[in-house]
Structures are given as structure tokens and as C-alpha cells.
Design a protein around this nucleic acid. Structure first.
Length: 424
RNA sequence: GGAGGAGUACCCAAGUGGUUAAGGGGCUUGUUUGCUAAACAAGUAGAUUUCGUAAGGGAUGCGAGGGUUCGACCCCCUCCUCCUCCGCCA
């Protein structure tokens, strides 16, 4: 959510942002509503003041005067009620529009419509060549009994799977290695609620836009999170930090993530790339409302993810995400795409975003600055590791001609072995 | 799941329909005394928004949202949170 004052004073920028982000929202209508609401509210305030003054005098009046006064205030009350019923639909429309208004991306963000317009800024690592025919992760994991997709589909429908044997251990090893790394960088590790209230979904700006991607538990009015970012950002919702000295707050959340993947029917159907339920460790930072601080922390988050891929010796590229491929609230975003041999291309494994105060405003997270002013925090997040998607490059790049998988060096201590081999 | 109770400021807590939401503790400032400290006095109800160059005024605000009323912390409804007891349970 943006500050209405900002929208009033920068309507051209906001309109351009909406066009660039492919968001349909009528800013002129919003501003007209804002003006009407303010005008009516002013009238209401004057009438309410009169009502308050008069009604407070009523107990001291004699019977005759009292009756007159009550009648007058009653008529005043009717006018107030009428005005309030006029303003109500305006406020509703205003709120609906406010939730749709996107944040204004930084100037550096490329303008474009889809992920094809994202701009590659670097490639790291060398795509290896093999002198034998490569198997894809589905074949490898079937042969080594690491994953069972057919039975996942039998039990839970399409895009479902079982992780088995060293497949599970590998995921746990990755998780533990990543958490240890992030702890060493100052993050507080957390396991988070996977089911959250609607406020948390709105507060992190996944709602109203992302409703159809979200699993709903109707009976209890709860929602399954698509990322622990929802729970981590909401952790401090409604709170005010007493001083900027306690910032930044750095958290990493381990969670299962649930995504309906509505509208992706027929897309990425093979294997573990696009599934309804996965495991992810997410980095989240709340920081001061300062461009430079946020900028540096964004680069820090991005670098952490890159280090993880470098440790795993997975070749990747980093792209600047274009306006059309950005979320509503994001002002700067980078994706990291890992090389996936079976897809023959780099594909997204990490996504790093800065929000300015877009989420903090909705979640009401503030801090008191040096001068005692209350300000909304800035929020940022990035993937640290998401499995099973990361298993695609991992299994495919670490496969050997005999069908075994070499364990990356950094994971050996967590796996307790150096190879996954076919059971005899 | 069943039966009760509670939510007021940084903390405790009074307030059951009427002007300015008691009182403690803590905190801040001041006065006093040789120190730790004590006593006394004053200040401590946030936050949002609107009008105004400003000084200052208005509206909202007692867990959240509605309702009744001329007027609601107080009465009614819904929801959230916490506590006690019973039942169930990894």
C-alpha cells in the first residue's frame, strides 16, 4: 500500500507504474474518491462537533429545554447518518483501489511485460559438458528411489510427489546447511505458522491479487502460506520498534509452501519443477526507511543466495526482473536462475525483492527514528533454498555415468556420505 | 467439543449511560540532602486524520468491527486474544 499523500503528489509516477506493471487501476478515480471522502469527512466532523457539544449539555437542562435539545440533536443525527451512508460506498471503493495501486519501481528496473523481458546481468560458473548421455532428474530419482511421483499423484493429484530415502535426506542436508550458513550471517532461524489469517495475506500484499493461487481452509478462515515470507513479515505486524538501533531484523524461515498453480495447466508438467507443495528457506529483512540501507541489504540477500549456489557449484545467472514480471509491491527485484540440463536452460530458483514500505504500511510495522518520528520499516526478502526444485540441477549436474549421484562437498558432512548409489 | 471468566496507557488497576477515563508503580524533569537513596512537586492516554503560515482547533480512539441511544469504556451482536475447569489428543 502506498501513502495516499504520495499518490496525490505523484499521480503521474503512480500511473506510469501501473502501466509498466500491467496493473489495471484507475488512479484518477482514486484521487476523486479521496477528495470526496475528505470533503464529506470535514462536513461530518463539524456536525459531530455540534452534536457532541449539545448532547454533553443535555443533562443540565430543565425538562422543556431538554426535549427541544434532544429533538434538535436527533435531527442532526439523521443528517450525520445520511452523510455516513453516502460516504460508505465511496470508502469501500477507495479501499479496494488502494489495495490495487502498485508501488513505483526504481528507475533501474527494466520496463517489460513478461519474464522474457528480464535483463541478464551476469552468469556465474561454467555449464559443464558430459561425455555420456545425461538422464533427467525424474529418471535419476526413479532409478535411485529418491522420489515417487506416480504415487504422489495417486494420493494427492497432479504436481504431487513423495520424497524417499536419500532424496529426503538430501533435502534435509540442504536445509541444515543453508540454515547454518544464514545463522553465521546473523539471521534468526524460525519455523513459522503455515496456516495464517487473512490479515497476514493482506499485510504482505499477497491478497487481494494472489487469492486464486492460495489454498483456503474455509472452515477456519485460514490460508496456507505460499512462502514463509508471509509469516516472517507478519511476525512484527502492528508493532513499533522503539529505536532504529534494533534494525535491521534478519530472519530465515523454514516452511512448507503451498501453491495452487492455477492457470498453469499443462506448463512444466514433467518432474519436480512446478509442484503444489515444497520446502523453502526464505530470508526476510525489516530495515529502516532508507534507500541506501535497503539497497545494500537487497544486494546482501542476493549475494547470500549466490553463495549458496556457488557452494553447491551450480552454474547460474542473475536477471533484473522487468516491471511486468514484478509483484504489485516490489520496487526492485532480481531472479537467480540455475542451469538445469534437462530443461536446457537457466530456470528460476531464487527471487529477491525490495518493497520500500509497501508491506510495512499494510502490516503496520513502524520504528521510532533518531528524532522521535514514527516511520514505516522497509522490507526485503529472498529465497535461500527451495526444494525439490533445487534437486533438479543438483541431481542432474552431479550424476555419474553409472547412474550414481556425487554429493556436493558442502553437503557431505550433513549427508554422512559422498555418493548416492543404486541399491543392489 | 462443553461450561465459565477476562481484555482500559510501559506495568498493575478503578470506572455499569452524561462535561476533563480515578489511583498506584515505573519513567522524565525540577527542588532538597554528604553518598546509595529518600521525600516533595510537576509531567507522563497512545495513534491516525483534517483545518490552520503558526499558535492552536476539530473528528476518530478503552482488544477489533458493527448496533441501540440526544449521548457508550459501560447496554446488544459478531469476531480476535488470553485464563480456569471438563472432554479429546501427537
Amino acid at each position: 500500500m502506498l501513502d495516499i499523500k504520495y499518490i496525490r503528489e505523484n499521480s503521474d509516477k503512480v500511473k506510469k507504474a501501473a502501466i509498466d506493471k500491467l496493473v489495471k487501476v484507475d488512479i484518477d478515480r482514486l484521487l476523486a474518491l479521496d477528495e470526496s471522502i475528505v470533503t464529506i469527512n470535514q462536513k461530518l466532523d463539524v456536525m459531530k462537533e455540534e452534536r457532541n457539544i449539545l448532547s454533553s449539555k443535555i443533562p443540565n437542562l430543565d425538562a422543556n429545554e431538554k426535549q427541544k435539545a434532544v429533538e434538535y440533536v436527533r435531527s442532526l443525527k439523521e443528517k450525520i447518518t445520511t452523510l455516513e451512508s453516502e460516504i460508505f460506498p465511496l470508502k469501500e471503493e477507495y479501499t479496494t483501489l488502494m489495495y490495487l495501486v502498485p508501488s513505483v519501481p526504481f528507475d533501474e528496473v527494466p520496463i517489460g511485460k513478461t519474464d522474457e523481458d528480464n535483463v541478464e546481468i551476469k552468469r556465474v560458473g561454467v555449464v559443464p559438458t558430459f561425455n555420456f548421455e545425461l538422464k533427467d532428474h525424474v529418471t535419476l530419482s526413479e532409478e535411485l528411489d529418491l522420489v515417487d511421483i506416480p504415487r504422489g499423484v495417486k494420493i494427492a493429484g497432479s504436481r504431487s510427489y513423495y520424497l524417499k530415502n536419500d532424496g529426503l535426506i538430501l533435502e534435509m542436508a540442504l536445509s541444515r546447511y543453508v540454515i547454518d550458513k544464514l545463522i553465521s550471517k546473523g539471521f534468526t532461524p524460525m519455523a513459522v505458522p503455515l496456516m495464517v489469517k487473512e490479515e497476514a495475506m493482506y499485510g504482505t500484499s499477497y491478497f487481494p491479487g494472489g487469492r486464486e493461487q492460495t489454498y483456503t481452509i474455509t472452515e477456519d478462515n485460514l490460508y496456507l502460506v505460499g512462502t514463509s515470507e508471509v509469516s516472517l513479515v507478519s511476525y512484527h505486524s502492528g508493532e513499533t520498534f522503539e529505536s532504529e538501533n534494533v534494525l535491521p531484523k534478519m530472519y530465515c524461515g523454514l516452511s512448507n509452501c503451498f501453491r495452487r498453480e492455477a492457470g498453469t495447466y499443462g506448463k512444466d508438467t514433467r518432474g519436480l519443477y512446478r509442484v503444489h507443495q515444497f520446502t523453502k528457506i526464505e530470508q526476510v529483512i525489516l530495515c529502516e526507511a532508507d534507500y541506501d540501507i535497503q539497497y545494500k541489504l537487497h544486494d546482501f540477500l542476493l549475494n547470500n543466495a549466490e553463495e549458496i549456489l556457488q557452494d553447491l557449484k551450480i552454474p547460474y545467472r542473475v536477471v533484473k526482473v522487468c516491471t511486468g514480471d514484478m509483484g504489485n509491491g516490489q520496487v526492485r527485484k532480481h531472479d537467480i536462475e540455475a542451469w538445469m540440463p534437462s530443461r536446457g536452460k537457466y530456470s528460476e530458483t531464487h527471487s529477491c525483492s525490495s518493497f520500500n514500505d509497501f508491506q510495512a504500511r499494510r502490516s503496520n510495522i513502524k520504528y521510532k527514528d533518531k528524532d522521535g518520528n514514527l516511520k514505516y520499516c522497509y522490507t526485503l526478502n529472498n529465497t535461500a533454498i527451495a526444494s525439490p526444485r533445487i534437486l533438479i540441477p543438483l541431481l542432474e549436474l552431479y550424476q555419474n555415468e553409472d547412474g550414481s549421484i556425487t554429493i556436493p562437498d558442502v553437503l557431505v558432512p550433513y549427508m554422512g556420505k559422498t555418493k548416492i548409489e543404486r541399491k543392489q
